[in-house]
């Protein structure tokens, strides 16, 4: 077989495995979230469709496909259609560079951390454009809140990454995982981890930072005017972002695929699902912040803490 053709084929199959696997995880995350909330609130959760409600995500998907796709007359059509696409695409992108096991990753680029930051920068536009193009006051306020929130917390996120890069001495995710052979980054980078986790919650628009879609004040925030599959894309994008963020936390702080006895891929999945569970746990435990508190926490607490973390890491790197 032609070697170029073989390479393309292998890469194509890898991409299909990653995207397919991730979309499967995302679909079943909706079920997991409902099961977890049911457990926290002492009820049963979905249990009618299939055994233990296992077919529920498929039923939801079919329902959303067959709903009428309404495009309101007062929207900016082009931007309105593009917005959910940006959200979903950018949510899938981080998986390009995440190492799932020692050998299985799609690509290893030497500035991987910067790629993650660039993706999260572009991701902002999906929700921002949805808010602005909808031409409705709730969407508009939702979009405005998203923009200010993501900008504020991206700074803390990037500064937490700086600590990691200093400690591991590389920006490539593969090398960062390998550098955690003896000790996971979460131990020397505990301040950075706390900052990163809080900033990640805000980046994901999850409670306690879900002000862009606070249903008590804003109906549904930036996706108020969306219906059918476009709404589903926002919903899936949200869960895909959640999966991506859990995978990033696993890779960067929890040693990635490293672990004894079991194969790397299994360790990666276990760690990722623990992080996912913690995200859900927080969502159903805490109330929502007020908006000025949210911006205050970002700039007055997380950014100084992240800078402190960088200083400590630099001192540790020099003297240990």
């Amino acid at each position: 077989m032609n070697p170029v053709f073989r390479d393309v084929l292998i890469t194509g199959v890898k991409i299909a495995i990653v995207i397919g696997g991730m979309l499967g995880v995302v679909a079943y995350l909706t079920l997991m979230e409902r099961k977890v909330v049911a457990y926290i609130q002492e009820r049963l959760g979905p249990n009618r469709v299939g055994p233990w409600g296992l077919l529920q995500p498929i039923a939801d998907g079919i329902k959303l496909f067959f709903k009428e796709d309404v495009i309101p007359a007062h929207v900016d059509k082009v931007l309105y259609v593009i917005a959910p696409m940006i959200v979903m695409t950018m949510a899938v992108m981080p998986f390009v560079i995440i190492p799932f096991s020692k050998r299985f990753y799609l690509s290893d680029i030497n500035v991987g951390i910067l790629l993650l930051l660039a993706i999260s920068g572009i991701n902002t536009y999906g929700v921002l454009l949805a808010g602005l193009s909808s031409n409705s006051k709730y969407s508009m306020i939702g979009g405005l809140r998203v923009a200010s929130q993501l900008i504020s917390y991206e700074v803390a996120l990037a500064l937490a990454f700086v600590g990691i890069v200093l400690w591991s001495g590389s920006m490539s995710l593969v090398k960062i995982v390998e550098a955690q052979h003896t000790i996971w980054n979460i131990v020397p980078q505990i301040i950075g981890f706390i900052v990163f986790f809080i900033a990640a919650l805000a980046e994901l628009n999850r409670i306690p930072f879900d002000l862009p879609e606070a249903e008590a004040e804003l109906v549904a925030g930036y996706h108020t005017e969306y219906s059918s599959m476009k709404f589903a894309l926002f919903y899936l994008g949200e869960y895909a972002n959640l999966t991506a963020m859990s995978a990033i936390i696993t890779t960067v702080y929890l040693g990635g695929w490293q672990g004894p006895w079991l194969p790397g891929f299994v360790w990666f999945a276990i760690k990722m699902f623990i992080v996912l569970f913690v995200f859900m746990w927080i969502r159903w435990t805490y109330p929502r912040f007020r908006f000025d508190q949210l911006i205050g926490v970002g700039w007055k607490l997380l950014v100084p803490l992240a800078l402190l973390n960088i200083a400590i890491t630099a001192i540790l790197r020099i003297y240990i």
């Binding site: 030497n110 910067l114 930051l117 660039a118 999260s120 920068g121 602005l132 900008i151």
Partner: peptide, 24 residues
């Protein structure tokens, strides 16, 4: 690669959001 990504992060990720802010 470094400058390329910094270009995206700073200009695309930061400055255009601020411009969008002003427009809103």
């Amino acid at each position: 690669d470094y400058l390329g990504f910094v270009q995206i992060i700073v200009y695309a990720g930061g400055i255009i959001v601020l411009i969008a802010f002003v427009i809103i």
